[in-house]
Nucleic acid binder design. Structure first.
Lengths: 236, 236
DNA sequence: ACCTGAACACCGTTCAAGT
DNA sequence: ACCTGAACACCGTTCAAGT
C-alpha cells in the first residue's frame, strides 16, 4: 500500500544480490512476454530494480546475454530417460525440446542467428548433443550413421549441429577447453568429431559435407513420403 | 574521379526514381553483406542517396520492409520443373530453396520471426506453397497426405506452412483477398485449406492439429533412421 | 499537395566523475 | 577500488515547418 507500483523496492533489491542467473532469468521472462524485440538491457535492469550498467558486471554485452539465454532454455530440455529403447528415448526428448520451444517462442530465431554468426556451442547445448549421441550409440548406430542422424534430427527441430564440428582454422577451438578436457566431459561428441574429421581423408577442411548431409536428410524424408503414398494407393 | 566516395550522387539519384522494388533490393543487399543487425532504415536510405523519410513512401514501416524482403528472396526459388515425376520435382525445388537460404543467411531467422508474430503469408510464399501442393497432388497424393507432407517439408526447410491455415478468428482473413479471388489464384491451397477445415468436424478452431503434425513428421524421420540402422546391421 | 529536416523516445555501450 | 550518471552514437518514426 505504501509502495508506488513500478517503483523499485530498495529492500528487495539489496536482499537478493544480482547474479548472472538472476539476470538471465529476468531476460528470459521478458522475452517470453514480449518477444525478442521487447528485450533490452535497460528493461532488464528496470525489472531487477537496478541501474543498466550493473548488468555488465554479470554479462559482457548483449551477445553474451543472448548466449546465456539460449543456454538457460536448452538446459530446460529433459535429459534422456534411462532404460528405454533408443527410439522412444529420442522421441521423448525431441518432444520435450518442442515443449521448451513453445514456452519460449523467441528461442528458434535467436538460436538460428547466434549459431550462424558464432558457432560456439554453450555448455547446455553440448550436454544436449552429448546425450543425444549417446542414445543413438547405445541403440546400435554406427558412428557414421549417428553423424547423419544428428544432422537429420538437428534440421528437424532446430539449427543445432549444423556447423558444430567445423574444425576450421578460425573460430571454435580458440576459446574452447583443451581437447583432453573436452574428451573427458563429452566423450560421445569427441569420438564422433574424431571419426568425422578423419573420414574425408586429406580433403582440406574435410570431415563434414553440409550439402551431402542436407541431401541425405531430404532423401530420407522423400523416402518416407513415397512409402506413405504407395501404402495409401495399395490400400484402395 | 571528381566524386567523393560515400557522397550521394544527385544525378544518379534523380535518374532512377525510388521504387518499392529498389528499396527492397537495397535492403536485401545490405542484409546479405552485414546480417540482419546491420540493416537499418537510415543505412538503406544512405545507400540509395536519399533521405530516410523518403523510404516511408514505399514501405509503411520496418515490419513491412521485412515482409517485402521475405517476399523478394522467396521469389528467387525456382518454380517447379515441368514434366518430371513428383519426387525429383520436389527434390530440385527444395535444393533451390536451400541455395536461396545460403545466399541470404539472414532469411531463416527473419522468416521464423515474422511468421510467428504475423502469420500472413506474402504473395511469393503463397505461390511457393501453391506450386508445391500442386506437385504432390499431381503425384497422386491424397489431400490428407499432402497436408502431412507440407508440414513435413515445411519443418524440413523453413518455418513455412507452420501456421498457415489457422482460420482463427483474429488475424489473417482481415487483410487477405476475398475467398473467391484466393480460390481462383491459388486453387491448390484453397482446396487443401477447405479439406483441412472440414476434417476435424465440430472441434473449435479445428482443422490442423500442430502437435499431431509435428509427431507425424518426427515419426516419419524415426522410421527412416530405424530402417537405416537395420539395413546396416544385416549388411554386416 | 508534397517533401523533409528537426525532434522524440528509444537503444547498447563508453567513460569520466563521483564515492 | 568500486559503482554509476551523463554522454555518445546509434535507432524507427512523428510531425510541423518548409516548398
Amino acid at each position: 500500500m505504501g509502495e508506488l507500483p513500478g517503483q523499485p523496492d530498495p529492500a528487495r533489491r539489496s536482499r537478493t544480490p544480482l547474479s548472472r542467473q538472476r539476470v538471465l532469468s529476468a531476460a528470459v521472462a521478458l522475452a517470453d512476454e514480449g518477444g525478442a524485440d521487447a528485450l533490452s538491457m535497460r528493461k532488464i535492469a528496470q525489472r531487477l530494480g537496478v541501474v543498466p550498467m550493473a548488468l555488465y558486471k554479470h554479462v559482457a554485452n548483449k551477445d553474451e546475454l543472448l548466449d546465456g539465454m539460449i543456454d538457460t532454455v536448452v538446459g530446460e530440455i529433459d535429459p534422456p530417460v534411462e532404460g528405454a529403447d533408443w527410439r522412444s528415448t529420442v522421441r521423448l526428448r525431441v518432444l520435450s525440446a518442442r515443449r521448451m520451444l513453445l514456452r519460449h517462442p523467441w528461442a528458434p530465431a535467436v538460436i538460428e542467428t547466434r549459431m550462424k554468426e558464432r558457432p560456439a556451442p554453450t555448455p547446455a547445448v553440448m550436454a544436449y548433443l552429448e546425450g543425444m549421441i549417446g542414445v543413438f550409440r547405445a541403440g546400435g548406430f554406427s558412428l557414421d550413421l549417428v553423424h547423419h542422424a544428428m544432422h537429420v534430427m538437428g534440421s528437424r527441430l532446430m539449427g543445432f549441429s549444423q556447423e558444430l564440428f567445423t574444425d576450421s582454422p578460425s573460430s571454435a577451438a580458440a576459446s574452447s577447453p583443451p581437447p583432453e578436457e573436452m574428451a573427458a566431459r563429452y566423450p560421445n561428441i569427441a569420438e564422433l568429431a574424431g571419426a568425422v574429421a578423419h573420414e574425408a581423408g586429406s580433403v582440406v577442411g574435410g570431415g563434414c559435407d553440409d550439402q551431402f548431409e542436407f541431401e541425405f536428410a531430404l532423401d530420407l524424408t522423400l523416402d518416407g513420403l513415397e512409402r506413405l503414398r504407395n501404402a495409401a494407393a495399395t490400400a484402395d
